[in-house]
Design a protein around this nucleic acid. Sequence first.
RNA 1: GCCCCCGUAGCUCAGGAGGAUAGAGCACGAGAUUCCUAAUCUCGGUGCCGCAGGUUCGAAUCCUGCCGGGGGCACCA
Length: 553
Amino acid sequence: MALIRDRLTELLTKSVMELLPPGIQLEPEIEIPAQKEHGHYATNVAMMLARHLRKNPRAIAEEITAHINTSEPDFLEKVEIAGPGFINFFVKPQAFAETLPEIIEAGFDYGRSDMGKGTRIQVEFVSANPTGPLHIGHGRGAAVGDSLARILQACGYEVEREYYINDTGKQMEILGRSLYLRYLELLGKDVNFPDDHYKGSYMIDLARQLLDEKGRSLEELPEEKAINICAEYAGNKILQDIKNDLAEFRVFFDRWFSEKSIHDSGEVKETIEFLKQRGFLYEKEGATWFKSTAFSDEKDRVVVRSNGATTYFAADIAYHWNKLKRGFDTIIDIWGADHHGYVPRMKAAVKALGYNPEQLQVILVQLVNLLRAGEQIAMSTRAGKFVTLREVMDEVGVDAARYIFLTRRSDSHLDFDLEVAKQQSNENPVYYVQYAHARLCSIFEVARERGINFDERNIPELGLLDQPQETTLIQLLGEFPYVVQSSAKFLEPHRISYYLHDLVSSFHSYYNHHRIIGENPLLTHARLYLARALQIVIKNALDLLGVSAPEKM
RNA sequence: GCCCCCGUAGCUCAGGAGGAUAGAGCACGAGAUUCCUAAUCUCGGUGCCGCAGGUUCGAAUCCUGCCGGGGGCACCA
């Protein structure tokens, strides 16, 4: 038995097709009206058609409903025309209830679809320089990227997650020198620590480790050599810490891609050569420029500096070429919003490489405004003043942090108040949702204690689920696959959180008004069956957010 | 100066591919548990949807301008 929305879509499409003039395509949209009086579902398709048919929308609605009624759909109670031309559908409660087995039989797979049909998508995210610990802003990017990957996977895309490591260039040199200077300090030397170097205390810790492992051996080396060793040492250690932090944050990557490797393999040179041959490069003032203005960027960009060094952008073009050549249909980059100016040139590069710029999707994640009890906390990586992701995880927990990150659009500014986030109270929406899951688990526990033998393979008397709140819940459960699909389509994980909140809120209300385990064994069985479906959907939705579904709280 | 994002209830934010009377949480006040977890529920009201024009039968949503906030405009990464 298909979900109601699917059946309605099919029915409506068939009826609308009859009326469509040749050459006009129209996919009827079905929404859930804000007001209950407007039915379970509604469509504005008659008004959409009015323009094409040059007819009164209500008259069109009459024709559509007439056509629908002739096919006598068994799941509809009535169809109404209302307002300027809306068609409102009232579904039989029993028809809703009869969709429950579909959810329960699908179980863990409920909400999954083949929307992506195996299309290959790569999601690149976090990609923080290994020059310091991850901070809370990286945490947001990590949560968004990871959740998005989970959602796309659930929709039948073949997803690969990647982290691009900027392990070469000027920042690494500065990192190396920072460590070297801290090391010399430990040896009692008087050093002048430059202002633009990494001042965080973690560098001093690293220097101690370095001293433990290598003794005074670096002291005798030429400075350049020592700095190189230090850069590699620090880069590796910090990257390892980053990996550990991300693992604890439940974020995993299929591939860690080194920027250095793309230089070493000659791909950066090859890319520049390729662009040159295609006439997209020119020389000016000793530097080599990429003609990105030819692809609607504001200005041309340097790829090789006059001192012969390639720019970060050059490596980035090579990297994106590498990604595209791996055969992904779409590559998604998740960047901090402060990099938004970078989007046009990257798209320009994709086009110059002979690919469709649409294949590159950039998601900009706004910076996090970190607060403690309403007081803003200033952050700066170099100055070493920042709250790390690890500190946030330790203080507020992974679930709360992830949920907060995923409860806002990624392109909107986020106030993250540590004091609020760590409170295990009703101020914290994550517990509201998790509590519903724990509550459901507890109901099954109690049922078992009372000797109720619930077996979800036995389909109960579904007609008993005729309370309006039950119908509302079942309708919401039926929406889950579409919510997941729209999250995937718009690349917006926060849609899941909002849906979850809605669903859970309806459940809590239902719980307070009706008893699931009651006198009547048939009714109890039916309600437990509904409870099981709720449990499944809440769990599946939380999984997509990477938030745990506790059985007890 | 130019470009991008944002501006919705006291606060934090949804809605944004145009549709019916614009929503949620928090905060504030009052209530609910002999019974499955009170981290729950019920009730209470608030909005020139930044401002001004335009497109449309219809605009929080699309277009233009302005105001306010943030960000970006390197031969840095």
